[in-house]
Amino acid sequence: MKHLLPLAAAAALATAAATPASAATPIAGRYLTEDGAGVIVVGPCGNTVCGRLATILKSEPGAAKTDVNNADPALRTRPILGMPILSGFTDAGSDWRGRIYDPRNGKTYKSIVSRNADGSLKVKGCIAFFCQTQTWRPAK
């Protein structure tokens, strides 16, 4: 019986260490991309959070309407509108971590997203430790 208490305490500490101490501020909503080209709707996707291109506001003349730059030939015919841009985001305590897809070059990057005090999203796309940051404003 003496050994059960230390084991139970160790198990409780291990569980606590695996769980973030605090939850990240929710990021669900509609956001205008920094360049004003589209509106991304962010919300739950199963056990994770994702974001889809809900509205195209600006496109270059003659721009493809499908994902022609995707490295996977099987995905090159999928429409840009409705495409998942953010995927697999999970609560990392102070922010959300997942992947971001750029249909302009067909590449996917590690991403870190957090909500700013003004309700905008700070969206980072990273290759190794080099990151590019954008601010997405709430869409009306």
Results as ranks from 00 to 15, higher is better:
97 R>Y: 08
85 I>K: 00
103 P>L: 02
1 M>E: 14
52 R>M: 01
64 A>V: 03
76 R>W: 03
3 H>N: 14
71 A>M: 08
90 T>Q: 13
23 A>M: 08
73 P>F: 04
58 K>L: 15
63 A>G: 08
117 A>W: 01
134 Q>G: 15
137 R>I: 04
91 D>C: 04
60 E>T: 07
95 D>L: 11
19 T>Q: 10
68 V>K: 09
12 A>M: 11
61 P>E: 08
128 A>V: 13
136 W>F: 14
137 R>V: 05
101 Y>C: 04
35 D>P: 10
129 F>H: 11
83 M>A: 09
15 T>D: 12
17 A>Q: 06
3 H>P: 01
63 A>N: 09
23 A>L: 09
36 G>E: 10
120 S>C: 14
90 T>I: 09
6 P>F: 08
122 K>F: 12
114 S>I: 05
29 G>Y: 04
5 L>C: 07
88 G>I: 05
5 L>R: 08
28 A>W: 03
126 C>D: 01
4 L>T: 07
139 A>S: 13
23 A>D: 12
114 S>K: 07
66 T>D: 13
132 Q>P: 00
85 I>D: 00
106 G>C: 09
33 T>C: 05
97 R>I: 07
21 A>Q: 11
63 A>Q: 15
81 L>S: 12
84 P>W: 06
15 T>S: 14
139 A>H: 10
93 G>N: 13
138 P>D: 11
115 R>N: 03
38 G>Y: 01
55 T>L: 06
131 C>P: 10
123 V>G: 03
27 I>W: 00
26 P>C: 05
40 I>T: 03
129 F>V: 15
77 T>S: 14
89 F>N: 01
73 P>L: 13
105 N>E: 07
7 L>D: 11
31 Y>W: 06
39 V>G: 00
83 M>H: 01
95 D>G: 09
13 L>H: 08
110 K>R: 15
39 V>A: 02
100 I>V: 14
112 I>W: 02
62 G>K: 11
59 S>L: 08
140 K>W: 00
126 C>Y: 09
83 M>S: 11
36 G>V: 14
76 R>F: 04
31 Y>Q: 02
57 L>Q: 10
62 G>C: 10
42 V>R: 00
